[in-house]
Design a protein around this nucleic acid. Structure first.
Lengths: 353, 353
DNA sequence: ATGAAAGCGCTAACAG
DNA sequence: CTGTTAGCGCTTTCAT
């Protein structure tokens, strides 16, 4: 046993040439066999078996680095999200990971922290790493890097957020406008009039902009005058404090605000926290709807009404579109744009007035 | 503009040779300059500037694939967790990502789904990809693959879970025993006697085993007879249903169980859900403690008492130890074992009897 | 102060 | 049925 261990420890990694030398064939032959091209090249069954047996015995593992260099393909794709520790993106990452694996691809996940500079440098870094494609939930104001990808015909698909000003790119997003509209409309239907929106900065992100618009249009359709004082913008950097301040502000306002529409899960969580701290009961003293659903929203007391995104479908489509891109790099196939519907999950955080 | 775009579109990726040809120097020189070895090799300042300028202009990006092959180093490390969509692991992944970036490394994250076969194949795959090191929260019963890593002197560190039977490996874990002990002890101190533990299968995972032991020892120390009927094992595959069944079982038991100790966050969440469904009030009718804390536990109503893990410190140490390993591959430095303390966050889910 | 050449481990076109 | 050779893009030794 100890001799065996020592032998393992001293063994350099096995490579094609080792196998070849050992049986007295060329490394070409070994390569062919190991890639399943043995029959195609008419290599004797017997030889093939010998090769396979020895590879197993010597624990041969192809060096994917060398293989990738030669093939110009890494079978790796990059995923860029704002923050992988955020439940929404973590779930998305997992979905994408699974679908990628199905196609034989691996994933490098990077967090951009909603920072332009960081996202740009991540994109460059991933390109240097020669990833075969990119899935990006972009936070960029400056779209230079995305334009560069497009001009280079680099395979990529945008998810969650897209660039309306860049035509002809792949993207898979949800209908943020309609989702927000439905949520606010629900509040209006059950009798609310003074509905504050807890939105977020930076404002340029399409998803946020569309949700804001949905909020405003629902009010208009409901015949409610828009009060810009009730469209609160909370800076991304300090959501918890921002939300608390805005809620306090709202409470001292002349109009009696009866409902809050939180633009995303983090804002919603902060709102729950702030309301508890201020000892304001949901839904009796304040109704709340969240854009983005969470398992917790279902089990909380009260449970929270939320707009649910079809994450599974987003992931599936994003990966499939990317795979099509990668496999048709030259042919430059038609770009695909998908806008998926959301679902309003009505629970117990909104009171009928 | 359109000419510019077309030009970009048709441009092949710039490589060292292109730069070299363009200025009339060798690619050796360009490589030296771009790696900051210009001065060391006594290359004229003027030449250096010319090179740098042209690289910028032609947007030269080294092909890391080629570089890695040459250098035998990918600056990539692999992280294996049970499930990246799980909040605990997502937060861990983020922490590790950040620390790795500091050292100039990237991360490939893979989910093993607590499956032996999947984890083994991920390890092999990452080795083929030539990652420089591995951080593993292992789920393996069969430790063959870990032993192989060890024998090959492949740099790796175990986090969260380790193998007591494999001596001399790096690991960073928390004191699961003490954490569980403290939690149960707290329950005993505030008057509970019949405390059920909602534990999980597979049982072999060290963290679970240690938590179970902490539970049992706290009972013994508290002079409470151990009732094996109250140590419930819930299968990993279907936590939600398992927890509900176990709780129902407990409720019909002869002894009146007054407190639940959930072995991890998922079990705790399922317990909250099940109790709500059964209309049992926390903490009045049933007290609850969770091993693993979550932001939500603080804002829920009632807030949930939980054992908090020092995630930040775990990540920092895991990465630092791995980096030391990688940079001393040959010297085979002394392995490091860290066991970090947990903290009991007492909130409102446990009633004093 | 700079360049030629070898080679990292692999695959594929071509030759025999 | 199998081997020779070239080359993916880079770094580094050695030569000049």
């Amino acid at each position: 046993m100890s001799i065996f261990v020592i032998k393992l420890a001293n063994m350099k990694k096995t490579k094609l040439q080792d196998i070849a030398n050992n049986i007295g064939v060329s490394k070409t032959l070994v390569s062919m066999v190991m890639n399943g091209h043995g029959d195609k090249n008419g290599i004797k069954k017997e030889t093939q078996e010998k090769v396979i047996a020895l590879c197993k015995q010597l624990n041969y593992k192809p060096n994917q680095m060398a293989r990738s260099l030669r093939l110009g393909k890494t079978n790796t794709i990059g995923l860029i999200v704002a923050d992988i520790s955020n439940t929404f993106y973590a779930k998305m990452a997992r979905g994408i990971e699974d679908y990628c694996n199905k196609f034989g691809y691996n994933l490098i996940i990077c967090s951009s922290d909603e920072k332009d500079a960081k996202e740009s440098s991540i994109i460059r870094m991933l390109k240097e790493k020669q990833v075969d494609g990119l899935i990006i939930s972009s936070t960029l104001v400056d779209n230079t890097e995305i334009l560069a990808l497009k001009n280079e015909h680099f395979p990529f698909v945008l998810v969650d957020r897209y660039f309306p000003e860049i035509p002809d790119t792949n993207f898979v997003v949800i209908d943020n406008y309609q989702g927000a509209f439905n949520a606010v409309n629900h509040l209006i239907e059950i009798g609310h009039q003074n509905i504050a929106m807890l939105s977020i900065l930076p404002f340029h992100i399409t998803s946020v902009r569309d949700r804001n618009k949905g909020y405003l249009d629902a009010l208009i359709k409901g015949g409610i005058n828009i009060d810009h004082y009730l469209l609160c913008q909370i800076p991304f950097e300090n959501i918890e404090m921002g939300v608390e301040l805005e809620i306090k502000k709202i409470l001292t306002y002349q109009k009696k605000v009866t409902a809050l529409f939180a633009v995303n899960q983090n804002i919603a969580i902060a709102a729950v926290k702030a309301l508890a701290k201020l000892n304001i009961k949901i839904p009796d003293e304040m109704s709340l709807i969240s854009f983005d659903d969470l398992p917790f929203f279902e089990i909380m007391n009260p449970s929270i009404t939320a707009v649910d995104q079809p994450l599974e479908i987003i992931c599936k489509n994003a990966v499939e579109i990317l795979m099509a891109e990668i496999n048709n790099k030259d042919k430059s196939i038609k770009k695909r744009q998908m806008v998926l519907p959301t679902e309003l999950r009505i629970r117990n955080s909104c009171k009928s007035l």
